[in-house]
Amino acid sequence: MNDTNRWTTTLDIWSSKIGEGTYDLIFLVRTESPAVTHSKFVGIKKFKQSKDGNDISPTAIREIMLLKKITHENVVKLINIHINHVNMSLYLAFNYVEHNLYEIIRHHMDKLNHSINQYTIKSLLWQLLNGLSYLHRDTNMQVVVTIWYRAPELLLGAKHYTSVVDMWAVGCIFAQFLTLKPLFQGVEVKATSNPFQLDKLDKIFKILDHLTLEKWSSLASLPHWQQDVRHIQGHK
């Protein structure tokens, strides 16, 4: 834990913020720790304070529980956890991974101005599927994804779903590797906790045709299909 103490004090003195999510900030920190195998850099995720007060957020707890279970070459490795008892901040230290898929796609689009080599796509897709396969098999976990990659059942308000939603996301990413553009780039509605994403569904329908009960019998049980069927069919 001493390493993390050093990292967390370093955050304010020497570090660079390399990302920000809904619940967290990501910093890049240099370290000499023997625990870090591949790199002299560590990615430190600092969780934002929970809305309810000073307790540790359920999101952070769930993430830690899952990450502690996971040991796989295609899943980023959690190497340390630290709680700063003074301000109740929670820090997770990961082996630093230099690039993400978004950066690779951007690089090909902006700098190289040509599509990704098919062998690279094959390799990236294999790594993605290998990691997902492990998560589904060993942790029984679904990976909740950003709206561009969200499966129709999620967009239609399904409360119970399986790992097939991740396969939809993989398909969307595969298409993006090939074209360098998101396949279904809908505009996200953020009005309520689970709003109806009509624009996003419309993008899917334009490419894959409209949904019907004949094609998909369990549609009738999905909340937004029941409530918004007229809107959906009105977009035909």
């Binding site: 007060g53 000073n54 529980m65 956890i81 709680i83 008892h85 109740m88």
Partner: peptide, 21 residues
């Protein structure tokens, strides 16, 4: 009391090394 419980929450996490499964 609230503070004590929050401190205890952290103590549990660090004592159990976040093993909550």
């Amino acid at each position: 009391y609230r503070e004590r419980v929050l401190e205890a929450e952290q103590l549990i996490l660090t004592t159990l090394n976040f093993e909550l499964n």
